[in-house]
Design a binder for these strands. Structure first.
Lengths: 151, 151
DNA sequence: ATGGATGCAAATGATTTGCATGAAG
DNA sequence: CTTCATGCAAATCATTTGCATCCAT
């Protein structure tokens, strides 16, 4: 699998047509597992681990291996973002499901909340001076949540 | 190992006295491997993987397992930061070695450069409204570097 | 002396790979 | 009917654990 990122910011989650066309344009097939996994991501507005995704599959025939392969594929195709919360699991979230956002994770209870604030406009532009192009960023916050602080 | 973070922003890399006192205050010992690993991190101003650290050890007797244990310890003590570049390796960098900074990683060649720009003042303060305290952030940039673009 | 740290061997757990079968285009 | 995807089994790789020994305090 060497497909370059090819989703030009056009994919809207649940937009099955767009989903199909991304796969088609790479001669990849629209299969049951791929559709179900995409829908699971769509209906969960927080990053999911491989085993969380696997656990939500209704088609219990679908193998864990398929989930791994699918997430790697989706990542290459620019359908999902890989997100790191500094624990032992990689998490995945649909790109463009909602507008661009970040997360705050409680260091104690590991609860996750979305954070709508993002980098100021033009922040990435500053970096163009470095000679890099196609710049993206990953930004996550960590803290102690209200309940954990009082507990 | 359950020591809470206890380095109140005071540790300066290479400041062996401070390093010793952090360990001492937790009844932990200042050993050869710990010192050498700290120095390796100090002299490499970019995040290192476990195996990179292991490879730089001059005392070849030091076991890989010790590197793992040491990095977990340093992280709990707030001596290092764990950094994620979305590949298969966790990386570690000394905190306070230089002033707070971030990185930009080339998605092709995986080269890493430091980025001095950080979040605007007051950015994290906005998040206090969410009820979280002791907020930190992780921010990394990804892009295609100059040489990879022309190549 | 004594509690913590290390090295070595072995276990664990996540992720990947090979291959024959099954399904999408 | 041809190519790509899946399931299953087995391999691989990073990371952790148990335990006897060693070393810093």
């Amino acid at each position: 699998m060497q497909a370059a990122k090819s989703n030009n910011g056009k994919f809207k989650a649940g937009d099955t047509a767009e989903f199909r066309s991304i796969l088609n344009s790479h001669s990849l097939k629209v299969t049951k597992p791929r559709i179900e996994i995409m829908k699971i991501l769509k209906s969960n507005h927080k990053p999911l681990t491989i085993s969380e995704i696997s656990g939500k599959l209704t088609n219990k025939k679908t193998d864990l291996v398929t989930v791994y392969r699918t997430m790697n594929l989706f990542e290459e195709l620019g359908i999902v973002n890989q997100i790191d919360f500094k624990d032992e699991y990689k998490r995945y979230e649909l790109i463009y499901d909602r507008h661009h956002h970040h997360h705050i994770v409680c260091r104690k209870c590991r609860k996750v909340e979305n954070v709508e604030t993002c980098l100021p406009e033009g922040f990435e532009k500053l970096l163009l001076k470095t000679g890099y192009s196609e710049i993206t960023h990953s930004l996550e916050f960590f803290g102690i949540c209200g309940s954990c602080k009082t507990a």
